[in-house]
Amino acid sequence: MSDFIVNWLANVPAFALPYALAALGLIITEKAGVLSLGAEGFLLVGAMSGIGVLLGIGDHPALALVVAAFSAALLSLVYALLVVTLRVNQVIGGLALVFLAQGMTGVIATRAGWTNRPVDGLQPVPLGGLGEVPVLGPILFQHDILVFAAVPLVALVAHVLGRTMFGLRLRAVGDGPDAADAAGIGVAATRYGAIALGAALVGLAGGYLSVGVAKIWVEGMSGGRGWIAVALVIFARWQPWRALAGALLFGGIEALIPRIAAIGVALPQYLVLMTPYLATLAVMIWICLRHDGTSLEPRALGIAHMREERR
């Protein structure tokens, strides 16, 4: 039993990290008042470009992750153009972006021949004896660099959003774009920045999925995690630390599935695979029932801004 728990806990970070990174990115974007339904697309783009680097350039996992983040940010400019400059409905824009990313990654990866080719990917940071410590070793010290970077990253985002002028401006744009505009803050520029920055983190999450966890590219491999991350942000009420907690919760559930199968309990595999989605749905219902789920939502979320609007 204790083996089971150790194995399970040791696997939680790998499952939780993509959620945590994606949710952090979405928080940045949504704090600036831009709904981000495109997460699933950014995950795919990040995942594919990460593998692309490993297969096309060579075994440089760090470079692969940087490129994953960068490609998602690049694609997010299309989204920004649509919803900030051209003021397209953000639901339509977000969906269109997911479909674009699905089609694009499918075409590029197939033509480049990246599909179903295993890579070495990201390896655990060697910490010598620490990893050998019983129980705590596997749980705490046999992880790759991104896992160790997660908590500082959450702290950084929480600090920047809450305790810097940049964060104040970003939140102002999401909460009161008219007020921000009157204060001389470039609403459009801030939103472009928040979209690109957020997409970079989601892309990093995607890169981690392929380079760090699966170590392979399969079409559509994000498997709805982007949507779960969107729900997670609502659950976290747009707060970075709560997003980390939520990511651990979801990662914990997901990490449990292969563990149960590994100890030989015969469970209907596909029914078990439904659980993350059902759990997400249950959590969202719970939030709605428990309190006014939108009370901490950025007030201008999903609303395009235009100064010279006159009715």
Binding site: A96, F99, L100, Q102, G103, M104, T105, G106, V107, T110, E219
Partner: peptide, 8 residues
């Protein structure tokens, strides 16, 4: 996937 890309 090209069909989906074109539609998008």
């Amino acid at each position: 996937a090209m069909v989906q890309l074109i539609q998008a």
